Computed example of a mutant assay.
Amino acid sequence: MRRFLNRLLPKSWRSSVITIPVIRLQGAIMSGGSQLRPALSLASTAGLIEKAFAFEAPAVAISINSPGGSPVQSRLIYKRIRDLAVEKNKRVLVFVEDVAASGGYMIAVAGDEIIADPSSIVGSIGVVSASFGFPELMKKIGVERRVHTAGNNKSVLDPFKPEKKEDIERLKALQLEVHETFIDLVKERRGARLKDDPDLFTGLFWTGKKGLELGLVDALGDMRGVIKSRYGAKTQLKLVAAPRGFLGRFGLFGSNAGGPAADIAAAAAGGLADVAEERALWGRYGL
């Protein structure tokens, strides 16, 4: 409403204060998720991204804190950001919090500039696959597993069976294809800013300070400081957030919920495998 009224005023009377929309992308990247344990995916972020790019602002700021996850969802989020940046002719500034690694870094390269804290973790440009199974536990509690398939390869990499050499070779071939797609995307976006370092695409990760030397990030700093220095001291930051549900309004559940109790509730809602996968992703970076 205020923006509409501002348009009705003569140009000399209009407010000159710039408002920069901010999106926070936090968590493991995977399809699905729930209100108790939200996950980063195109479905969960598309509305926020669209809303941020609808602002009358010269740029969109994105705060990212993610250890990675699904390559597909990572690329879908990346592409939605880039498509809207081109369509709306807006600059995208990405600010790294604790981690922007693996799929998290894939999303980060959607930015025209990547700014990190000196102690942030960036990089890990690689692909990993893991499966979780509980065969011993199932045996102890007397559960018998039965699988009937039509097709010789429908039970490839079954975690309840011994590994086969040919299955592992096929998995690695698939990983290499996904890895090449990741590398090409990073090279396309970062271009000459990337240093010629043999470890750059091996899956290693670095601090923001080292990432600056390697060309993985463009500058060191924090969102408020960088944006105000760029667009003026009076510039305002406007967080674009999803509407809170009925329970969230009363503080029963929400994006800030955490700790063991939240983990137990999420495990019951989403399954132990999802929790284990997310913990493994964060644990790789000491978090």
Score class of each variant (00 low, 15 high):
A130M: 08
A130R: 15
A130V: 04
A130H: 14
A130C: 04
A130F: 10
S131K: 14
S131P: 02
S131F: 06
S131L: 14
S131Y: 15
S131E: 13
S131N: 09
S131V: 14
S131H: 12
F132G: 01
F132E: 10
F132K: 06
F132P: 00
G133D: 09
G133T: 04
G133M: 03
G133V: 03
F134P: 02
F134Y: 15
P135H: 01
P135K: 03
P135Q: 04
E136T: 08
E136G: 03
E136S: 03
E136L: 05
E136W: 03
L137D: 07
L137A: 06
L137E: 14
L137G: 10
L137Y: 08
M138V: 00
M138A: 07
M138N: 07
K139D: 12
K139Q: 15
K139G: 13
I141C: 08
I141Q: 05
I141K: 04
I141Y: 03
I141M: 14
G142Y: 11
V143N: 12
E144H: 11
E144K: 14
E144Q: 15
E144C: 01
R145D: 11
R145Y: 11
R145C: 07
R145G: 13
R145P: 09
R145T: 14
R145I: 12
R145K: 14
R146N: 11
R146F: 08
R146D: 13
V147H: 05
V147K: 06
V147S: 05
V147T: 13
V147D: 10
V147P: 01
V147M: 07
H148V: 15
H148E: 13
H148T: 12
H148K: 11
H148R: 10
T149V: 12
T149C: 01
T149I: 11
T149D: 09
A150M: 04
A150L: 09
G151A: 14
G151S: 10
N152I: 03
N152V: 04
N152W: 05
N153R: 08
N153D: 10
N153C: 05
K154F: 11
K154M: 11
K154R: 09
K154H: 14
S155N: 09
S155R: 06
S155K: 03
S155Y: 03
V156P: 00
V156H: 06
V156Q: 04
V156Y: 05
V156G: 02
V156W: 11
V156S: 08
V156E: 13
L157Y: 07
L157V: 06
L157N: 15
D158Q: 00
D158E: 06
D158F: 00
P159D: 07
P159G: 02
P159T: 05
P159M: 03
P159R: 01
F160E: 13
F160R: 01
F160L: 06
F160P: 01
F160W: 06
K161D: 08
K161L: 12
P162C: 06
P162Q: 10
P162L: 09
P162Y: 07
E163K: 00
K164C: 07
K164T: 04
K164I: 02
K165A: 12
K165L: 07
K165F: 09
K165C: 00
E166M: 00
E166G: 00
